[in-house]
């Protein structure tokens, strides 16, 4: 009964192979996407990267990520060394406008950081702190305006007053 025996083994072999294929197909159906994702390249974070002399965030789809006249459009911050760290740290809690409308010395900016650490849940800034302070002191320094500044005559929009 040798031929029959070998036919039987062949049949069992085919059956086993079929079961394995079915199981693999089911694994693919259930987990295919997540397994494939393991091997796919990680998506790049959409963050404007500071490059001297270049526009920011060239890979970013958002037009607000561009830089105009040295200012990062989305935040209004000066686009210079330290920009990324300042944006990432400060705008986690508050608007960048709280930076751009203020002026202070390095010491004054440091006092604001200490106040935020003491009262507003800001943590330790570590090695980023001097980078942030250098950036703020360089680009948001006070100007001498005396006891009272002139009206900003350059900014006035002159118009003919219509009176009846």
């Amino acid at each position: 009964m040798l031929p029959n025996q070998s036919n039987f083994n062949l049949l069992i072999g085919l059956l086993n192979a079929f079961v394995v294929v079915v199981i693999l197909a089911m694994i693919q159906l259930l987990l295919g996407d997540s397994l494939a994702a393991w091997f796919a390249p990680a998506p790049e974070p959409v963050v404007a990267v500071y490059r001297p002399g270049a526009g920011g965030g060239t890979r970013a789809p958002d037009p607000a990520e561009r830089v105009e006249n040295g200012l990062h459009v989305a935040t209004g911050l000066v686009y210079a060394e330290g920009f990324e760290i300042v944006r990432g740290t400060c705008t986690a809690c508050h608007s960048a406008q709280l930076i751009t409308q203020n002026r202070a010395t390095r010491d004054g900016w440091e006092q604001m950081i200490r106040w935020m650490q003491k009262t507003q849940n800001l943590g330790q800034l570590g090695a980023n702190e001097p980078i942030i302070l250098d950036y703020l002191a360089a680009h948001y320094a006070p100007e001498a305006i005396g006891r009272r500044a002139n009206l900003d005559v350059e900014a006035i929009e002159w118009y003919l007053l219509e009176l009846e």
Binding site: L98, Q101, N102, A104, G108, M112, P142, A144, G146, A149
Partner: peptide, 8 residues
């Protein structure tokens, strides 16, 4: 002047 911190 010197500037005070906060909303201007």
């Amino acid at each position: 002047n010197p500037p005070a911190t906060g909303n201007q």
